[in-house]
Computed example of a mutant assay.
Amino acid sequence: MMKMMLLVVGVVIAAMSGVTVYQNLTPPNNLGLHHGRLAALASTPNGVSSMADNSDKRVEPLNFKADLKATQLAALRAFAHMPNNQIIERNERYVHAVFFSPRMGFRDDVELYFDQQNQVLHYRSQSRVGYSDMGVNKQRYQRFAELYAEAP
């Protein structure tokens, strides 16, 4: 009986691990621009956005540089100076990058929306798995904002 219970527990743990690995490797299906907005954050405390209603998850949008091209260049330079990321999608209005932790391989999706009408750069960063991110996404935003501000 004890061996059977251990086997069942082992199977459950393996299945849960498989789901976590799958979620970590699969981009969420709500990414991108939807009617001029980035996706809402999950209810878990592992993300930040300049479009968040919740003050705990809200970060400030960043002002445009001289024009759209200068803003895009400054944002891409900021990413280039930040470790462990890859740009997945990029167009005139939007950038999607994936940041990953080198040790555990956890992935976070970072999105930028170049809002030309309001002359601001919106930012969203959300962990794919887990409940809390221990403040990693907010720290990433702060570093991004610093590097963006330093760019000409």
Score class of each variant (00 low, 15 high):
Gly10Asp: 11
Ser17Cys: 09
Tyr22Trp: 06
Gln23Gly: 04
Thr26Phe: 07
Pro27Lys: 02
Pro28Asn: 02
Asn29Glu: 12
Leu31Ser: 06
Gly32Met: 07
Gly32Ala: 02
Leu33Glu: 11
His34Leu: 07
His34Phe: 06
Gly36Ile: 10
Gly36Thr: 14
Gly36Met: 13
Leu41Gln: 09
Ala42Cys: 01
Gly47Arg: 08
Ala52Trp: 14
Ala52Phe: 10
Asn54Tyr: 13
Ser55Cys: 00
Ser55Leu: 04
Asp56Ala: 15
Asp56Tyr: 06
Asp56Ile: 00
Lys57Cys: 10
Lys57Trp: 04
Arg58Gln: 12
Val59Glu: 05
Val59Trp: 09
Glu60Ser: 14
Asp67Asn: 10
Ala70Met: 07
Gln72Lys: 12
Ala74Gly: 08
Ala74Asn: 00
Ala75Pro: 12
Arg77Met: 14
Arg77Gln: 12
Arg77Trp: 03
Ala78Asn: 05
Ala78Pro: 08
His81Tyr: 11
His81Met: 07
Asn91Lys: 01
Asn91Phe: 11
Glu92Gly: 05
His96Arg: 04
His96Trp: 12
Val98Gln: 12
Phe99His: 10
Phe100Ala: 07
Pro102Phe: 04
Arg103Thr: 04
Gly105Trp: 09
Gly105Cys: 15
Asp108Ser: 02
Asp109Lys: 10
Val110Ile: 12
Val110Leu: 13
Val110Gly: 04
Glu111Leu: 01
Glu111Tyr: 03
Asp115Ser: 02
Asp115Trp: 08
Gln116Tyr: 04
